[in-house]
Design a binder for these strands. Sequence first.
DNA 1: CAAGTAACGGAAACCGGTTTCAGTAATCCC
DNA 2: GGGATTACTGAAACCGGTTTCCGTTACTTG
Lengths: 337, 337
Amino acid sequence: MATISDVAKKANVSKATVSRVLNGVPVREENRQKVLSAIRALDYQPNAQARSLTLGRTDVVGVLVPDMDGPFYGAILEGCQQALWSHGLYMIVRSTHHVKGSEPNLVKLLWEKRVDGLIIFTPREIKEKPMQALVKDLVTNNFPLVVADGELDSLSISGVWIDNFEGAYKATRHLIDLNHPNIGILLGPEDSPESKLRLNGYKRALKDHHLPVNPNLVAIAGDYRSESAEKVLPQLVKAGATAIFACSDELAYGVMESCKKQGIKIPQDLSLIGYDDVPFARLLTPKLTTVAQPLTQLGQVAAGKIARMINGTEREITQITLPTKLVVRETSSVYHG
Amino acid sequence: MATISDVAKKANVSKATVSRVLNGVPVREENRQKVLSAIRALDYQPNAQARSLTLGRTDVVGVLVPDMDGPFYGAILEGCQQALWSHGLYMIVRSTHHVKGSEPNLVKLLWEKRVDGLIIFTPREIKEKPMQALVKDLVTNNFPLVVADGELDSLSISGVWIDNFEGAYKATRHLIDLNHPNIGILLGPEDSPESKLRLNGYKRALKDHHLPVNPNLVAIAGDYRSESAEKVLPQLVKAGATAIFACSDELAYGVMESCKKQGIKIPQDLSLIGYDDVPFARLLTPKLTTVAQPLTQLGQVAAGKIARMINGTEREITQITLPTKLVVRETSSVYHG
DNA sequence: CAAGTAACGGAAACCGGTTTCAGTAATCCC
DNA sequence: GGGATTACTGAAACCGGTTTCCGTTACTTG
């Protein structure tokens, strides 16, 4: 493996001149050519590590995600990677694999690897002591840090989110627009951040349209599995739901299956909206109306932000919320008294 | 940010001694303690770049995938990341985004980043000139390289695959065991490597059990979308198929939908097997029998291999094929004359 | 107690780049 | 033709670690 000194020797110039040629600093044309041909002859590649050492940057961004095998973070990482590369940045990825207590360790490891910046997706422990301390440290050293899809509270960190409130609001309002009098919501985990926000969006939509909030129409599945939906569906049916907003496509699917068994026709007897717009949502019969989350865009925006923080274009701390998109398909229709 | 010299000064020892403490080289206990407390006091983190420079390694592995947002590579990368980390290695990921001609560039970029090794998943251009030359270069320099899910032909590279032949064979034999006389196969893209292997597996299973191969029972959807399945299903029905092995779950889903419309009952009138075992396969009604690919394991095995190549434990070039798992659910049942 | 040996630790070289600084050569202008 | 200005270039310092090499000290041992 040739080094810059080899090139210099072969071209009969100093290392400095080679370096200048490499970095586009003006050099006498004759020398430039000598250097370039030496580079070609030796198949020289500059050593990125040596470069990092002097320049004090690695052109690598650390990315922490809870998992990569689920339906979400693949798309997010794809967006990240694209946007980072458009700024000449590489991406080191680590997943916590949902292991409790691993977040601070992984953040520390990435940071020790001297990444130029760090994106943390969906931190679950950002409110806990060790993570708090660590994050505060990074922020005071004004190290480029972006948190995506996390609860920041009073922390002054740059953040990006997909708007859960707005997603739920849109879904609910769509059902209101279709004249539904009794709109139920089927939540996943009881007190996850997104559940709270979606519940608020749902309630707000009802209030804004002067509809009552009926506690019996608020059901909690506890998780996002279709089986859980089947368990709590009776509650909503008993409460007279004419439409249901399920907080994941899988929950919605559970509702569809359960309804099929009980002879409830969708959308004739019951309108249904899912959340996420996973690939199979458009495959179901009837095709599922759902709220699409801009996952790839989330990754892109977070990555773009960190890139600008790294190159110094963006100095203020900002927080961005991305809108969802309601994808109307076949499971939602007008309510006829 | 404190450096090793700062620590040395504070502890009243030389840089060398600090380095020794850091790397576990024996040092007088008294000095060890002085160094350790200096490290703590200054919150010292060794500079990974400087370390890489002298040591000549980065502890980073480059990983190239075609995409991350599809249903496969997320799980694969998760496996990769786990296995790499268990060897203290980090992972830089790049996706080609299926862009034609990008593979050699991306490999070169990763390699210039001085990664310690490279895993290429599903290379599509490995047989083309630029990629060939590049790969040959890497191999002759015996740079740690693992290709996963790619066609190696005569290239002597370490490789890992999921056994497409065996997966198709298993699926077909399962249907044979269920007494099906007319087993059809529904292929995706006409001449993709995996299609060829699966078709071979299918044919071999039939031959091994003394059943004829009927060309009319071999249908080509052209891609893996459910709509395509619906288009070619009539061909298989007309040819008298009593069972169909579809080469993706989405194709299988298309078959299910189409059959529903035509009043063909699954599994009573027609048995069906999918491929991939995507999450919604177990949600369908009836639940889809399918061939599960060990994606996470593929990532783990490839990563384990590269890790051993890097630390010198594994010197020979080896090729590993991973078996699939037939997941029998409800869409396949015994054929009754 | 002197000589030999083992255990430590510091100075300096090195990894492969970038950048400063000063010197040289070329150009300009009168 | 000579002095001032400008354009390049090379030597050397530097980034922050690791490692070699050698001198010092402490410990054995006869």
